[in-house]
Amino acid sequence: MAESPFWDDVEVGLELPAVVKRPSTRQLVKYAGASGDFYEVHYDKEFAVDIGLPGLIVHGALKNAYLAQVVTDWMGADGVLRKLSVRYRGTDVPNDDLTCSGRVTKVYEQGGAHLVDCALTLINSQGEQTTTGTATVQLPARAG
């Protein structure tokens, strides 16, 4: 696991390393099994088309997990995720590159905790921002 960045060294505008995901239909089935979300739109194409979707779609909650990983990869072993919010603005299809990234928007102290807010975004290969989010992370601070 990566070492945690020190809160003192983090500045607004810092880009978190992006994570690129390309979920296959197999990955969607694995996610259905592990999460218990068996809504047919994620694995039964006929069902998805019948209700007016273009085809199978990626679980929103899987995209939530992808954006969480951007933050947890960056915050390292001593970072603590305090808040995570996501909004699904569009659907995504399997076998597409989903680029998940984050940017620091606020660095502050609250109740003795050293906190960083991040804006999160997931963009598909068409350049569409289909998911946005925010996160609050607690980081270690340098002594003194």
Partner: peptide
């Protein structure tokens, strides 16, 4: 669950991922 979200971090051996 960690496999299903494609997150191979060793963090998720004893601790559950955020979602």
């Amino acid at each position: 669950f960690a496999e299903a979200i494609g997150d191979g971090s060793e963090r998720w051996t004893d601790t559950a991922p955020p979602t």
